[in-house]
Design a protein around this nucleic acid. Sequence first.
DNA 1: TTGAAAGCGCTAACAT
DNA 2: ATGTTAGCGCTTTCAA
Lengths: 340, 340
Amino acid sequence: MTNKPRRPLTLRDVSEASGVSEMTVSRVLRNKGDVSAATRQKVQDAAKLLGYVPNKIAGALASQRVNLVAVIIPSLGNMVFPEVLSGISETLEDTDLQPVVGVTDYLPEKEEKVLFEMLSWRPSGVIIAGLEHSEASQAMLRQAGIPVVEIMDTDGEPIDHCVGISHRRAGRKMAEEIIAAGYKRIGFMGTKMPLDHRARKRFEGFTRTLAKAGIEIADQEFYSGGSALAKGREMTAKMIERTPDLDFLYYSNDMIGAGGLLYILEQGIDVPGKVGLAGFNGVELLEGLPRQLATMDACRREIGQKAAQIIAALNAGEDVPDGPIIALEPILAAGDTLRR
Amino acid sequence: MTNKPRRPLTLRDVSEASGVSEMTVSRVLRNKGDVSAATRQKVQDAAKLLGYVPNKIAGALASQRVNLVAVIIPSLGNMVFPEVLSGISETLEDTDLQPVVGVTDYLPEKEEKVLFEMLSWRPSGVIIAGLEHSEASQAMLRQAGIPVVEIMDTDGEPIDHCVGISHRRAGRKMAEEIIAAGYKRIGFMGTKMPLDHRARKRFEGFTRTLAKAGIEIADQEFYSGGSALAKGREMTAKMIERTPDLDFLYYSNDMIGAGGLLYILEQGIDVPGKVGLAGFNGVELLEGLPRQLATMDACRREIGQKAAQIIAALNAGEDVPDGPIIALEPILAAGDTLRR
DNA sequence: TTGAAAGCGCTAACAT
DNA sequence: ATGTTAGCGCTTTCAA
């Protein structure tokens, strides 16, 4: 049993306890430089006995190196960003870098604040969702002098590197698929957020492609807040009552799509014969549904992995083989709610 | 347009640009001490023009204060911890403290590693899930000399403070409810994780209470990995085939419960007449299901809020009114899958 | 209201 | 293989 210190332990304490110079203690604790086995042992014993935890603040200041990667995302509440995160963590696990997460709630001002806060810890790199940032945020990212990877989206001009999918293309592909399947009366449901640029781009790609085929969205509905599953259900009920001749429902995310699917099936409506449905994201959740909802994979985990690889490579002084923009291909999963 | 610096800017740069001493620049940037309006303006202009971002590493080392709160949780992948997190963030927003999240994947060794890593940044407090930690982790938490709040669970001995529910009690309450409703042939489905102590305690409370009423679990099944919804479906199918006379299915979380519910309804089985079901957590998701699954609220957001309040209070030198242990009451939501 | 000096705990760079 | 010296960029403390 050791005593509870008021003052946190320092290298000096370990040095005194082990009779080894501070510098050598530092070497042992970082596995850096040559230290004899005997000395190493003495130091490690002393450190463990005292319960010494190194002070990274001092270390970082002295070495001018911080092994942190700032990861800035809009939300943790919908399964898509956690999956990106696990791609990042998993990849960084093989390096000495560590992710630190900041959440913006889709608010540009909050993004600015979070970014400023994180940069003030002088991280080794930044991974940030989206290509749309305030002037100030862009300036900070550029000034920081560290690798920056913008993720999820490739429709725009990256500051440095970028990994994602083209959401316009995703919307377009889905529209093409729907048109090819012969659906004509199409309803759209999505989030109200004007700040979710990726949802907006998908919608644009979608409507534009429909327009080229002479089709216009027959009805649309937007929501915000609440249980996405319940909202999908409600919106769908309202919409098919209002516009009974719809033959396709496109949802901007899988969760509301799942709610809509459950509702439609309960009504005994033939899917995908009478009505087709599709969502977006390719979330794992869909696997347990009564029918497999058509969706489009957003490559979330892969985006995380690739982004982390870029940061790691740049941090190690290597250069990135694939160029500044990596556009992954969103893959359609037709499931069984979309006739082909 | 300013130039891209290779060397990050320092206080000194702002000092030179504004013609004000470093010390006064520091005062302005922290709103600390008296500075004349004119000087303040000069400094702020210079800082903004240059795009200066303070170096918190140096600041923290000099002031011996870090406004970070380490939050250590097992996972981000199931909606329960993100909700705790948002309770924490929301509460800390009113203070100058900031949460930093670490994830353990339910692995004690990883918990130890993450904790060590976070403590080495000398945070102002720690919020950590669960009451079970390795010897080393406990020692670190005790040695750290900072406020520690263990969350989610109250069945055990906290190191410092603790906020949560009694999972044994939650299991017991559910069992009582099921017994009162007259169910007798009960099946249990849950995660395989031997390291999810809270799930284990719920199970213990559950079986023990059943035993007192002379009832034994009639069948049980455990899973790991994969889509929880799909797993709930699969396990349920397997179980009712194997043990057709079951009249109640208790799931250790809502997601597998939802999968089970969907399956049971598809089979045309009368719920809750022939078979009753219940999950655990009270996740928002349930609201969109065809039937409202019975569940028990784990008070996740409130736990986060209370934990953050404790850290904030202790950090401000105040003391905590409610004593070291705050046990919230898990509330049963009978939904419509449990007859009463 | 402002400035100067002295460190915070560690590590880079150089001895030895 | 080990030790010494001089900072890292801030803030504390004290002086003006």
